[in-house]
């Protein structure tokens, strides 16, 4: 009798440990996912803060960023691609030693990732600026629905452009990042994603609240016309906004590619919708709100999938969104902070 009760205690103890273990693992999954959502959500919230417009093409910025990152990485590391490039253009023969250098040492790897992220962020940022110039600026004084429809058009255009001109199939993302697994399902890639997201979020927050350009952005978001009268170049502020948002989206896109291992033309759709939800959850137009919303949504989704049902994980996330909006229509941080951006 005593033995059996001791056994039972042991079983409960083991089960508790297992349960704790799973909770921590799901939290880790959630924070990683949340970091990506937060980065994308910032793009939505920045644009909304300044133009009061929902940039539905932002999910395609995320997708384009992933493709830019993928191709930059293949360009420097894929033997087949390097072979083709060097045989066509002999002066590119430095690529072969460059590949050995990048893959050969830790410093090379770090440099490679800096280049991949940098190139993708800059190209996607420029693409964002181009889209703003072509599709949104002519409509800046049109009724608010017009740029919204224009954004949906851009989104469909970009998806189909990649579908038809790049590939309709998923392309595997080279697993070059050294993945080391620690306890609780934490691995080096997850740590990298979370840390890099935090660094970017803090950097952006400081940029907007401390620098002069940030001040100009805040002024533009409060009153565009008045800011213009005070000598702020509104067009360049808006262009800058359309550079930063897509650049962050591109970083999230590469994270997504590295984390899930594949890149496909319609990969932007669900993360885009979820991140938009995160932006609304945190209070759209509010930077810290978007960050908070991203992490909250990621964690809810992972815990919901882990402890309630994987099939209902999206339902759970959206039910929470509705509940939050019923009690706090402005989002989690929407009311406490008045100023947008």
């Amino acid at each position: 009798m005593r033995l059996s009760s001791r056994n039972r205690a042991a079983v409960t103890f083991v089960r508790d440990i297992l349960f704790m273990d799973t909770i921590i693992q799901q939290l880790v999954n959630g924070v990683t996912l949340g970091g990506m959502y937060a980065l994308i959500a910032l793009g939505y919230t920045l644009v909304y803060g300044i133009l009061l417009m929902i940039n539905f093409a932002h999910s395609e910025m995320f997708m384009s960023g992933a493709y830019f990152g993928l191709f930059t990485m293949l360009f420097f590391t894929d033997e087949g691609m390097i072979g083709k490039v060097t045989s066509a253009l002999p002066w590119m023969s430095w690529l072969t030693p460059a590949r050995e250098f990048f893959l050969g040492s830790t410093f090379g790897l770090i440099l490679l990732f800096v280049i991949v992220f940098g190139v993708a962020a800059v190209l996607t940022g420029l693409l964002g600026m181009l889209i703003e110039r072509v599709a949104y600026r002519p409509l800046r004084n049109a009724p608010r629905l017009a740029p919204l429809i224009s954004a949906i058009g851009v989104s469909i255009f970009l998806q189909n452009a990649v579908l038809l001109w790049v590939d309709s199939k998923a392309i595997p993302f080279p697993s070059i990042f050294p993945v080391k697994t620690f306890a609780y399902g934490i691995n080096s890639l997850k740590i990298f994603i979370v840390v890099a997201s935090f660094v970017l979020l803090i950097f952006l927050d400081t940029f907007v609240s401390k620098t002069k350009i940030g001040k100009a952005m805040r002024a533009t978001s409060q009153d565009r016309d008045a800011a213009g009268l005070m000598g702020i170049d509104i067009n360049s502020v808006i262009a800058l906004t359309f550079f930063i948002g897509p650049a962050l989206g591109a970083v999230a896109g590469i994270f997504h590619g590295m984390y899930y291992g594949a890149v496909i033309f319609n990969m932007g759709f669900f993360p885009g919708i979820k991140s938009f939800t995160a932006a609304v959850l945190g209070g759209i137009g509010n930077l810290r709100g978007a960050m908070l919303g991203g992490f909250v949504l990621g964690i809810i989704e992972s815990l919901g999938a882990g402890f309630i049902s994987t099939g209902y994980k999206d339902v759970i996330a959206f039910v929470i969104l509705i509940v939050v909006l019923i009690f706090k229509p402005g989002g989690l941080l929407g009311e406490s902070v008045v100023e947008k951006v």
Partner: peptide, 20 residues
């Protein structure tokens, strides 16, 4: 026995639960 969507890309939560 669990359900997912055909468009899902994130199975980490599922995998964590499955592993236990």
């Amino acid at each position: 026995h669990t359900k997912t969507q055909a468009t899902d890309t994130d199975f980490n939560a599922l995998v964590t639960k499955a592993k236990a």
